[in-house]
Design a protein around this nucleic acid. Structure first.
Lengths: 149, 149
DNA sequence: ACCTAATAATTAGGTAGCCTAATTATATTC
DNA sequence: GAATATAATTAGGCTACCTAATTATTAGGT
């Protein structure tokens, strides 16, 4: 099994492991976790482009996590006064999530910092290599996705 | 802030998020978790190339996790009879971890399946792009590492 | 119109994979 | 030989998820 020594496999593997450890997800800013910011960002963007507030189920689909996960995160954001729940009058089972002014401000600041960091990364890698990286990562995802079925 | 709409940033971000969700780490095979297999693999490789068994502290350094994390994983591997602890006669504070025959067999099988999967990936991406990907991921890691200081 | 089935959200409880702080045993240094 | 450093462990905690069960509401079939 000399293949096991294949240097490309070794390199790739090491880079994956290191990348997974890369802290491109910061812990706890202003008392909120990365997963909470992700939900805030989805709520913010959804409201911006759809004019109507996001439902729990929609957030859950976008983030690819289960609805209970979203509910729990929202419980906490709600407790912190960043977010408000309102029943959808069209479908009274659904709950629309709305940012409070406080939540909106926090989200906007976080988004700004976040995008600046990533603009910096694109700058560091170069436009062309950044595109290439995105493409390759998508390809890796497709490979593993197809394996699983 | 039109920068926020930078399409390269958006693509890169989406590819990162998807990649992080990619199940290139399978859950539970033969009753053991990915993190347990990682420890097994390190023990296996360490013993192969150093002729002497791995210490907890060495495993911890290689996997970049704290010693308590390693201890706990080894507790479980020990309970399953995959691994044995033996005090190092040279330094009686240290513990050398040795695979039992059962542990060795399991590890060898897992390694085989694992490397086949990654050989398949390199094949899918192509040798050149695989190298490029590893290089770019390392660069991303450097960027975030330098930001943090 | 009525009952069944489907859907939205929630609560409760659990798991993986980490961590820090404190403790114990042994080594090293001055 | 005493103080300090190091190796491993135990105990307990945290994040980011999950599944199963429950409640409320809506939609579909007859």
């Amino acid at each position: 099994m000399a293949d096991r020594e294949n240097p490309t496999v070794q390199k790739l593997l090491r880079s994956f492991i290191q990348f997974r450890k890369t802290g491109w997800h910061d812990k706890k800013i202003n008392g909120y976790n990365p997963s909470e910011y992700k939900v805030l960002a989805v709520i913010y963007e959804g409201a911006n482009k759809k004019e109507t507030e996001m439902k729990v189920s929609e957030i859950s689909q976008i983030l690819e996590v289960t609805p209970p996960t979203v509910t729990q995160i929202i419980n906490n954001l709600d407790k912190g006064g960043l977010v408000e729940r309102m029943i959808d009058p069209q479908d009274r089972r659904a709950v629309r999530i709305k940012l409070t002014p406080k939540g909106k401000e926090l989200t906007e600041n976080a988004r700004k910092a976040f995008f600046e960091k990533y603009l910096g990364l694109v700058d560091y890698l170069g436009e062309e290599d950044s595109e290439k990286l995105a493409e390759l990562l998508n390809k890796v995802h497709r490979y593993f996705y197809e394996l699983k079925r």
